[in-house]
Design a binder for these strands. Structure first.
Lengths: 162, 162
DNA sequence: CCTGCACGGTTGAAGCATCAAGTGTAGGGT
DNA sequence: ACCCTACACTTGATGCTTCAACCGTGCAGG
């Protein structure tokens, strides 16, 4: 029988839970309004934009954005229809397909990033304040280690070739 | 032109974003597995269970779980179909409808709560550690004030009658 | 070889969230 | 009395997510 939550713990958890519903909604709203993108689809574009060559295997991309391959596949299909991403087979490895950020996709990211970053700063970074950023980092790191014991901070398994 | 994110800020935000995708997924998975409930539908049941009389106007319930009335209405329809909640008109105020937790719903909450609380403790409370709970509370409070300036901690507008 | 099996990826159906539009009630003005 | 707006919902369509099933490729063992 697990120990129950104390009053202080309960209060902290209630607030935390509220943040977990309201903050994603707020960020999604900003992206939807200004760019017609989901937080998730933006993240996909952003990840590709940071990769040298702006291209990555689907499965690697999936793990970078912490999603199932299925979800990513659907989203990439939509992004492809909008002309921001293209799929191409990987030579020398018939079963991986690469997602590539098109020029139009790059433009989209460039146009969208500043507004989104500003919103993140306003709602999170500045709200927390410079003296507590380290606390935020420590807390989220601690939670991450429980939620994702494998570690999202893994060394990358050197994507050979492609 | 908003100031860009520093390296430390960026690192903290990346981790935070990861937590915001993985933690809800983990909590949802536990509830789905053990009770066949969404985090959101569980929250609805839990809120009703804490109310004296186990009943509340839809709109008040909606604001307690930070959702639109539309979303709540759909969810309550499903919960009603499962026999855990019932809708009834409010006498003396023809336009509010009350959501009531049925006995079966109460049983459901009683059966589900301990497992869920245990998971919250495991993934969040214990991960953060007792000496940092206050930090968690402060940080989430600060973010909440930006995201929801109206304040989720409002004094309740005295639900007259019903 | 070639059989089996795991991996990478796609697809379709079902469930849940969101949005826009609709219903009916309450209350205020004239 | 009458309208007109605001409120408290509900409903239906649309879109995204999840789940299960599927296809083709590579690879290891017999």
């Amino acid at each position: 029988m697990a120990a129950w939550l104390t009053a202080e713990e309960q209060r902290a958890w209630r607030r935390t839970a509220a943040v977990f519903t309201l903050l994603p909604a707020a960020l999604d709203a900003q992206l939807q309004r200004d760019a017609g993108l989901t937080q998730f689809s933006y993240l996909v574009l952003a990840m590709l934009s940071e990769e040298p060559g702006r291209t990555m295997p689907m499965s690697e991309l999936a793990s970078m954005v912490s999603s199932s391959l299925s979800r990513l596949s659907h989203v990439v299909s939509r992004l492809e229809k909008q002309g921001w991403v293209s799929r191409e087979p990987c030579e020398g490895n018939g079963r991986v397909t690469m997602a590539r950020l098109t020029d139009a996709g790059w433009e989209k990211v460039v146009a969208t990033a500043p507004g989104h970053a500003e919103e993140v700063r306003r709602l999170v970074i500045d709200a927390v304040g410079p003296e507590r950023i380290a606390d935020l980092d420590a807390i989220t790191g601690a939670i991450l280690r429980r939620v994702d014991p494998g570690g999202k901070m893994r060394a990358n398994p050197m994507s050979q070739g492609c």
